[in-house]
């Protein structure tokens, strides 16, 4: 049970797969339009259940409780070896006299 006033993330379906706007690509029309938003849980709730939250601006949103204390996991990604070559190459051309093309 997740306690009320915990900072959480919920997910809601805004448009069902069959109700998407006209003219959008078939792959998009075949899936629902979903929304994720964060806020304080208004009442005790289980993950996967319908929840109400109060967002950062004080709005009330409803959706399925998905995440507790959601955090950013953005990083610098896996090593990309090609990047080593770029710096070495441009320095060689500029300072080492190598000219292509």
């Amino acid at each position: 049970m997740i306690k009320a006033e915990t900072w959480v993330g919920i997910c809601a379906t805004i448009l069902d797969a069959g109700s998407r706007a006209d003219g959008i690509p078939a792959d998009t029309a075949a899936v629902p339009l979903k929304m994720w938003v964060k806020g304080y849980l208004l009442a005790d709730c289980e993950i996967g259940s319908e929840a109400e939250i109060r967002t950062a601006t004080g709005r009330i949103e409803r959706g399925v409780l998905e995440e507790v204390q959601p955090h950013s996991n953005v990083d610098y990604g896996a090593f990309v070896p090609e990047m080593l070559k770029i710096g070495a190459d441009v320095k060689k051309v500029l300072f080492g006299g190598e000219i292509h093309g």
Partner: peptide
Amino acid sequence: KARKCEAFGAEVIQMTVGPELFYK
């Protein structure tokens, strides 16, 4: 960008792909 917006205190609403974002 969502992280940065939240760092400035904004409420961020994240949607899946589609122009109906405008509806929300």
